[in-house]
Design a protein around this nucleic acid. Structure first.
Length: 117
DNA sequence: TTTGTGACCGTAA
DNA sequence: ATTACGGCCACAA
C-alpha cells in the first residue's frame, strides 16, 4: 500500500485542491507548489485519483498548466470533468479552459500560509 | 531488482 | 502553432 510519507503528500494535495473556489481552476504545478512538492506535478494526478469519497475533493478544478483537461479526449473521465466544470460556469472549448479568465490566483495570505512563511 | 508508464512541466527548436 | 527532451517519482508488473 501507500507509505506513510506518500499519504502525507496526498493529504497535502487534497487539502490544497479544496482551496480552489467553485468556478475557478488551477494547474497541476500550482497545486504541487502549494502542497510543498515543487517539481513533482506528476504526483498530483495520482493523489486525486486516490482521493477519499467520503470527504470529497474537487479534482475537476485541476488541469494542465495550459488549461487543457489532462484525460484523453473522448474518455469517460474527460467527459465527467467537462460536465462538472460547465456546471460551475467554467467554459470549456476543445478540452481546454482559458486560464487567463478562470485560472485561480491564490491570495497572498494563502500563499504565505501554505508555504509556511 | 529493474523497467515501463503516466490526470505533468519548462525549455528549446 | 507543434514536437522533442530531460527532469520528476509513485506504482504495478
Amino acid at each position: 500500500m501507500t507509505s506513510a510519507k506518500t499519504l502525507r503528500h496526498f493529504q497535502a494535495i487534497w487539502h490544497v485542491t479544496r482551496l480552489i473556489p467553485e468556478g475557478y481552476v488551477a494547474g497541476y504545478k500550482l497545486v504541487a507548489d502549494l502542497a510543498g512538492l515543487p517539481g513533482r506535478a506528476r504526483m498530483i494526478g495520482r493523489a486525486l485519483a486516490a482521493a477519499p469519497e467520503h470527504e470529497p475533493v474537487p479534482w475537476h478544478r485541476v488541469l494542465r498548466s495550459n488549461g487543457q483537461i489532462a484525460f484523453p479526449a473522448g474518455s469517460e473521465a474527460a467527459h465527467t470533468q467537462r460536465e462538472r466544470l460547465l456546471t460551475e460556469g467554467v467554459t470549456v472549448n476543445n478540452q481546454r479552459v482559458n486560464m487567463a479568465i478562470y485560472g485561480w490566483q491564490p491570495p497572498l495570505a494563502t500563499l504565505l500560509h501554505e508555504l509556511n512563511f
